[in-house]
Amino acid sequence: MLKTLIKTAAVAALIGPVAGAAFAADDYPSRNIEMMFPWGPGSAFAMAQIITNAMGDELGTNISVVSTPGAAGVKSFNTALEKPADGYTLIDGWVAPLVLQPLAGNTEFTHTDFTPLWSATRVPFAVVVRKDDERFPDYDAFIQYLKDNPGKARYSSGSIGNIPHMVLAKMMQTEGVYARNIPYPQDGDAFKDLRGGLLDFSFNDPITFQSNKDAFKTLVAFTNEKDVAAAYDENTPTLDDLGLDIGLTGLAPSGWNWFLVHKDTPEEIVATLNTAMEAALNRPEVQERLKAAGFLPTMYPPERYEEIVGPIGDQIAAAKDAITWEAEQLAK
């Protein structure tokens, strides 16, 4: 048995590299596919599984989602890039490692180093305060309070230098105010301390807000669209409702992800994946489940990747300076 094994191995080693490439596209997918996910397992992880599970159905294979958190999501991208570009490794391209980290000079790749599949979902962010906090009846009172108490208020965006931090800092810079961001590697701990009264305000996502409706209220949702803000509740004002322009429009002030593969992946394989992903996203039960969990499907086709992600990159490049500005104000 060992001899056969060795023989097979030897033959395969000789013809493998040639035959492998030729066969690859024809019988794709012939084995399990994996998708690298940049954060710790949680709700976003479950959403990735919803989509890949339906995609796997379409392709007739299994797609496992592997969580490789670390270095603000960059570790997962690097892990994926080290694997062969054969279409058996997908990337859940969340905006922070895809756009923000390259702009911060923390990566060797940029968003143009990947071949896009379909876009997946978006999570609109909002500013929340405690419902019973008399200091903050509405957005204007909130800004006035920050003006009167410069640098005294404490908030959290989860981690330092992430997308919510950038958005909140940019909003405050636009209003000419600043506050102290307390970093919490686990977002949930921050929401707990907002409830407990230690923090003055915090960023939030639709589902945490729904679950804490008894204690939280929104001051603004970072979107221009009324129906996106409705993922919180009907009373949540949009940026437009407040007449606010923070230089971030469309997807730019929210969290979003776009499924990607390695740039060198063969075209036929990318086409197969795209067909499967489109069909998966169009399944009613997939749409329904994503929406119910506060992850809104974006439904952008691969062709629109550059046109959408490019300008977001420019907006983010301009907005991320607000974080530096905030640090300078606090150091004064």
């Binding site: 097979t8 191995a9 395969a12 080693a13 013809i15 493998g16 590299p17 035959a19 492998g20 084995r31 399990n32 596919i33 994996e34 299994n62 496992s64 592997v66 062969p84 058996y88």
Partner: peptide, 18 residues
């Protein structure tokens, strides 16, 4: 691991597959 736990095991760069 592959069939029941659906893990993608290392494939190898020499093109060996079974």
């Amino acid at each position: 691991f592959e069939e029941l736990l659906r893990v993608v095991l290392p494939q190898g760069r020499l093109g060996l597959s079974f």
